[in-house]
Design a protein around this nucleic acid. Structure first.
Length: 823
RNA sequence: GGGGAAGUGGCGGAACGGUAGACGCAGCCGCCUCAAAAGCGGCCGGGCAAAACUCGUGUGGGUUCAAAUCCCACCUUCCCCA
């Protein structure tokens, strides 16, 4: 039967073309409707999309469509995080220039995203590799520079030997490169940084504002920022002018110090090491030179070597040996720590190994005497053997000791952060050029704003060795903006996380060539109401974006909220054959083949249906087939009735003549209610909504067989495309059009759940005796306790259980349950 | 080692103090068909031939009239941080 077979390929193509022609999903800048900004993290144009990507975009699309149909002016844009290493690696491996490689990938991915039926406002598309975009990246750099928040300094940095570039701290978490997973090395290089540490306190405090974020992401950011309060004070070095500054959060253990540990890169090391130990210390330090942070702190055994020098504890005046160690890092704190073996795990291990004394100074609560320790005691307690401070609690002692150090002028209370400045230099080609030139006379000089953008030259040789830009004389040779004399251009490019830290603002005003965005327009759209993406960006992109937004706020370029993303939703992963899709695993399922084989609507429905969106889900052949069946069933249930449906108003609830009609009306409105509830609660568990849609279609199919003339059936058919539209947008459009509607269904209002349709005429009263179910009684809703009790006593099963016992208590949950407690 | 999340039929999941297993998948039976596929209808946690009954939400306790749901301990898995 030709007219009842659903030609998804033709119909889906037809509507995708129509939406594009009509710009159905454009967001209107000045519009009386309330705004809603829904955004999925912008993708890197790697070339091909698979169904894993589709999972991300489908959820955002369903949310955008639900909100649009509920009367919001929805901004739902898409673009490309187009700078980055894969383009350059392709150039090295295959000799293709990054620009055309990236552009053809974008073209292909854009085609695939359209195939997924997602409703984006393509007029706002951006690609970060175009000068029109990175112009403003450079401009933002200059503003940060002006405020002293962009600066260059020499520092030990993370170097990825595979990607041949340096990495920010967040990008080398756990000692491996975030991109390629290879262990990073340490190198001393002069590099550009953004001073994110200046915002550490605010980034931490404002986490409290982010109630719409998953708690674990907030916790991860809190840990990453790593604020700790403590004391910074100095140890003098015996027979030496050098002083060793240390930071500790446990000043209450200061009388337990039995050694000092300093990093191999400590600036005072040369000055304090004694002649006798110079050679062995040098050998130890040299052996550590190329070792990464990961190797030093995690893989290698805690080790160190005596310097021959002694430090004097400023409070106990004790003399303790100074060790160079592999586990104290120059970049953390002051590069020196006090060793308290009795109350610190690492110190305990170290002391054991080197035969250092273990002096207990904190007594666990409830213990009286000092007992030999076979493990360090890490918690708080009462101080012993601590001079004037003996007998105090840890807490009191910390305060008193800090006061003492401050009073003696030996130290101060300080706050230490784990977070470090954001290293943005990359020795690579495919990125935003840093707008700085070096003049012999004027040194480091920013490129004037009116000379932006500093355009990336296209004629380069990309070999994978060294910075490609350094070998392009036309690029390197520049004029000094101050004196016009010869100058050398900076050849590092920016970390691609810079571009993605503000792209959500550019979507608001994407074609502005005079400024990065117009405040009037961003004020209308920002902040992003719902941000959707994976958890892997918890401390990278999401932290950088928050930092940028606060800076923009301080500069007055954005107003209102100080956070860019009001709500954040973390999508779960999509697995196939138990593993994440990747080329190397050979389990990638492409968009094109999926869409051709099953249809987009079926794919979308499956991705939303299989699990709640935050859970990891497994792609299965059986699962997608189930949704293909659903689409076909829905079509067969509705299509033969479109004409009759068109003649029935959806504004009025028809009256049901029998139980089956009544049940169908319930199913219709239960589906509507579920869709609206899942959207407004921001829970987005559309898997349950689609289950209600199954029941809806089951109801249609059943009634169509038994009573094809039913008005209720015609009504339910008429409403169906509206209810299913956010999830299966093509099927919805086609049915809607066949019902004679001219405008896109996606501009219609979503139906409201009708309480009359949802009301039940009969309830099942559960009767329990002592909490065990003994009977189920059908009854009219609204019965009172006395009536319920009467009904219950008419049940032989209940009476038998009570038999001669006394009813102690009755619990009645109206229209649901009666529990009789007997004994 | 610390922190977090989660353990429910053969499978994905639903229920989030009040009828456990909605809905789908797989399986089984029937109708249709020469037959198959598709479609349509039905069954589908365990024990019992069946009803009655009874046991069932990782394990063991607890709170409650009532626990998959709340609390405690343990086991397992996954994710973060050391």
């Amino acid at each position: 039967m030709a007219e009842t077979s659903y030609d998804f390929l033709a119909i889906e193509r037809k509507w995708q073309a129509r939406w594009e022609r009509d710009e159905t999903y454009r967001a209107v800048d000045d519009d009386p409707r309330p705004k809603y900004y829904v955004l999925e993290m912008l993708p890197y144009p790697s070339g091909d999309l698979h169904v894993g990507h589709a999972k991300n975009y489908t959820l955002g699309d369903a949310v955008a469509r639900m909100m649009r149909m509920q009367g919001y002016d929805v901004l739902h844009p898409m673009g490309w995080d187009a700078f980055g290493l894969p383009a350059e690696n392709a150039a090295i491996q295959r000799g293709v220039h990054p620009a055309p490689w990236t552009e053809s990938n974008i073209a292909n991915m854009k085609r695939q995203i359209r195939l997924m039926g997602t409703g984006y406002d393509w007029r706002r598309e951006i690609a970060t590799c175009f000068p029109e975009y990175y112009h403003w990246n450079q401009w933002i750099f200059l503003q940060l520079y002006k405020q002293g928040l962009a600066y260059k300094r020499e520092a030990p940095v993370n170097w990825c030997p595979v990607d041949m570039t340096v990495l920010a701290n967040e990008q080398a978490e756990g000692g491996v490169c975030w991109r390629c997973g290879s262990p990073v090395e340490r190198r001393n290089l002069s590099q550009w940084f953004f001073k994110i540490t200046a915002y550490a306190d605010r980034l931490l405090d404002d986490l409290a504002l982010l109630e719409g974020w998953p708690e674990r992401i907030r916790t991860m950011q809190r840990n990453w920022i790593g604020r700790s309060e403590g004391v910074t004070f100095a140890f003098a070095v015996e027979n030496n002018d050098a002083r060793l500054s240390v930071f500790t959060t446990r000043i209450d253990t200061v009388f337990g110090v039995t050694y000092m540990a300093i990093s191999a890169e400590h600036s005072a090391l040369d000055a304090i090491v004694t002649k006798k130990h110079r050679q062995s210390v040098k050998e130890f330090v040299d052996s550590l030179k190329s070792k990464s942070e990961l190797e030093r702190t995690s893989l290698m055994e805690k080790d160190g070597i005596f310097t021959g020098a002694y430090a004097i504890n400023p409070l106990s005046h004790e003399r303790v040996p100074i060790f160079v160690t592999n586990y104290v890092l120059a970049e953390y704190g002051t590069g020196a720590v006090m060793g308290v073996p009795a109350h610190d795990e690492r110190d305990f291990e170290f002391a054991r190994k080197h035969g250092l004394p273990i002096a207990q100074v904190i007594l666990p609560p409830g213990t009286a005497a000092e007992a030999p320790l076979d493990a360090p005691y890490l918690d708080e307690g009462r101080l012993i053997a601590s001079g004037d401070f003996t007998g105090m609690s840890s807490q009191r002692a910390r305060s008193a000791l800090a006061d003492r150090l401050v009073a003696l002028g030996l130290g101060e209370r300080t706050v230490n952060f784990k977070i470090r400045d954001w290293l943005i230099s990359r020795q690579r080609y495919w990125g935003t050029p840093i707008p700085i030139v070096y003049c012999d006379e004027h040194g480091e000089t920013p490129v004037p704003e009116d000379e932006l953008p500093v355009v990336l030259p296209s004629d380069v040789r990309i070999t994978g060795e060294g910075s490609p830009l350094a070998h392009v004389p036309e690029f390197v040779n520049a004029r000094c903006p101050k004196c016009g004399g010869p100058a050398r251009r900076e050849t590092d490019t920016m970390d691609t996380f810079v571009e993605s830290s503000w792209y959500y603002l550019r979507y608001c005003d994407p074609r502005n060539s005079a400024e990065p965005w117009q405040r009037r327009i961003t004020n209308n759209w920002m902040p992003v109401d719902q941000y959707i993406g994976g958890a892997e960006h918890a401390v990278l992109h999401l932290l950088y974006s928050r930092f940028f937004y606060k800076f923009f706020h301080d500069e007055g370029w954005v107003s209102g909220e100080t956070e860019p993303f009001t709500r954040l939703f973390n999508q779960g992963m999509l697995l196939r054959f138990g593993e994440k899709m990747s080329k190397s695993r050979g389990n990638v399922l492409g968009i094109d083949e999926t869409v051709e084989r099953y249809g987009v609507d079926a794919m979308r429905l499956f991705l939303l249906y299989a699990t709640p969106p935050e859970d990891t889900m497994e792609w299965t052949e059986e699962g997608i087939n189930g949704r293909v069946r659903f689409v076909n069933r829905a079509w067969r249930a509705c299509e033969p009735f479109v004409e009759r449906a068109a003649g029935v108003s959806i504004a009025e609830l028809p009256s049901a003549a029998d139980a089956e009609e009544k049940a169908l009306l319930r199913a219709v409105h239960a589906a509507i209610k579920s869709a609206i509830d899942e959207t407004t609660s921001r829970r987005f568990h559309f898997n349950t909504t689609i289950a209600r849609l199954d029941e809806y279609v089951n109801g249609l199919t059943g009634l169509a067989q038994r009573n094809p003339e039913s008005t209720v059936l015609a009504y339910a058919v008429h409403v169906f495309p509206l209810v299913v539209a956010p999830f299966a947008p093509h099927l919805a459009e086609e049915l809607w059009e066949r019902m004679g509607h001219r405008a896109s269904i996606h501009m219609e209002r979503y139906p409201q759940p009708d309480p009359h349709a949802l009301a039940v005429e009969e309830i099942t009263l559960v009767v329990q005796v002592n909490g065990k179910i003994r009977a189920r009684v059908q009854a009219e809703p609204g019965l009172n306790e006395a009536t319920a009790f009467e009904l219950a006593m008419g049940q032989p099963g209940v009476v038998a259980q009570i038999d001669g016992k006394q009813i102690r208590k009755r619990i009645y949950v109206p229209d649901k349950l009666l529990n009789l407690v007997v004994s």
